[in-house]
């Protein structure tokens, strides 16, 4: 398909702005009149005010810091073994074929159902959220690393051998350039599901963190603040995804 022209792009931008305006107006009207959902749907303006209130409050940043720490810990603990295991799966045919069905089944399973096990193992504190984040991050990273490893053309490796490259040189000149993109892509997916794992864990049972904050507002029937926290969390997760996508584009440019 031909690339869209300038006028088509301008129309598309206009359509987006108009759609957003209509949606927000509809939300505001439904919220103000309480016609459909009653108290359960606060108007957009109330949610916007709640977002501003959250961003200005100090306790919000305490919860944010805990959640960010859990995400960082879970991501490191899940992604590093994920890369190692994925590379091994990709490099060793029998290991890859043997582990594939189990990895695929576990990757599909909603990770939140492992929360009871990790809560029994490490308690209901932040450790359980780190563990759930790690379990979540492991699988997409492992799968991406394995398929990246399998996709390296054997001729690249043979060329490296023909030039008598040593182990370190093989890694630096053959494997790393070929693996950078699939691994970064896996890391992007892994970070996304890690954030989801941590936040769902906090929503289910926690005493601190953004998930807990949302839960707390829910229990207090403060729905505008609940919507605000969900919106902030959603925006932060999208930001993280966008940053990893940019990293992926850079990895692609370096190929």
């Amino acid at each position: 398909m031909a690339a869209p022209g300038v006028s088509a792009r301008r129309d598309a931008a206009l359509i987006r702005v108009l759609t957003l305006a209509v949606l927000v107006a509809l939300w505001e009207a439904l919220g103000q009149t309480r016609l459909v959902f009653g108290e359960a749907l606060p108007p957009a303006s109330a949610v916007a005010a709640a977002v501003a209130r959250e961003i200005a409050s100090l306790s919000f940043y305490r919860h944010l810091a805990v959640t960010l720490g859990e995400v960082a810990g879970g991501f490191l603990l899940g992604a590093l073994p994920g890369v190692a295991f994925g590379l091994a799966m990709g490099a060793r045919r029998v290991l890859g074929a043997a582990a594939d069905p189990y990895v695929a089944a576990l990757a599909t399973t909603p990770k939140i159902v492992f929360l009871p096990i990790v809560m029994l193992a490490v308690g209901i504190g932040p450790g359980s959220k780190v563990a759930l984040g790690a379990i979540s991050a492991f699988f997409p990273v492992a799968i991406a690393a394995a398929s990246g490893m399998r996709a390296i053309p054997p001729v690249f490796v043979r060329v490296g051998r023909a030039f008598n490259l040593r182990g370190g040189q093989m890694v630096r000149m053959i494997y790393l350039p070929a693996l950078a993109l699939p691994i970064v892509t896996g890391l992007r997916l892994g970070l996304g599901v890690c954030i989801v794992g941590v936040l769902l864990g906090e929503l289910k049972l926690a005493s601190v963190g953004l998930g807990f904050l949302a839960r707390d507002y829910y229990d207090q029937y403060d729905f505008a603040s609940l919507y605000a926290v969900v919106a902030i969390v959603f925006a932060l997760a999208s930001l993280a995804n966008g940053a990893m996508s940019r990293l992926a584009r850079r990895a692609e440019a370096h190929r």
Binding site: I195, L199, L200, L203, A214, Y218, V230, V233, N241
Partner: peptide
Amino acid sequence: APLVLVYPV
């Protein structure tokens, strides 16, 4: 996007 995160709403 992590759509599941909107479940409280």
